[in-house]
Amino acid sequence: MEIPYTVKERPDTGLNNSKLGIWLFLASEVMLFGGLFSAYVFLRLGAPEGAFHEWGKELNVPLATLNTMVLITSSVTMVMSWASLKMNDFKKYKLYMGLTLLCAVIFLIVKYFEYTAKFDHHLYPSTNTFLAIYFTLTGLHGLHIIGGMIVMTYFWLPAGNKMWHSEPEHFANRIEIAGLYWHFVDLVWIFLFPILYLL
């Protein structure tokens, strides 16, 4: 038995099931990070005047700027991989998806160096409330990156070829869904970057 509207759009809503599903999931993610942002503001207001700014100076702005660029680039390659599928160019899809994964790996490597540099200077989550929320937010964001990489790798490996050849439309939808998630992860970083590194 086929579930209706898995691939095709339902006429009155104009959506397929997965599209609505991923947006609801992203809505819940907005509230998850919303809870943590709210905690950040709460702690910042509760800390001594200017303390968050002082504590934040320990972070490495150039590395974070690099990482911001890397994630933005990965968002572009991600959307390009979807556009390539829409243009029936599977080779280009492979290329762009590979680049997206490469960007994700670079992001995590940079993050690793940032974390170890902090630990080397004996800066831990328990050091102060700023570092506590810094490690929590970036750590949770990093987990989201890893989650996205797992899904994208699955679609990039031969499993993707098979899906593309048997059900091209369904596969393009799946890449669009994965893309929506990935852009969201990028979007979260766009807010994390200034509030953690610059303010």
Partner: peptide, 16 residues
């Protein structure tokens, strides 16, 4: 759906 979410997101932000 997103407008609804954003509304509650702001409720969360106004809490602190």
């Amino acid at each position: 759906i997103l407008l609804l979410t954003i509304a509650f997101f702001f409720v969360l932000m106004f809490l602190p």
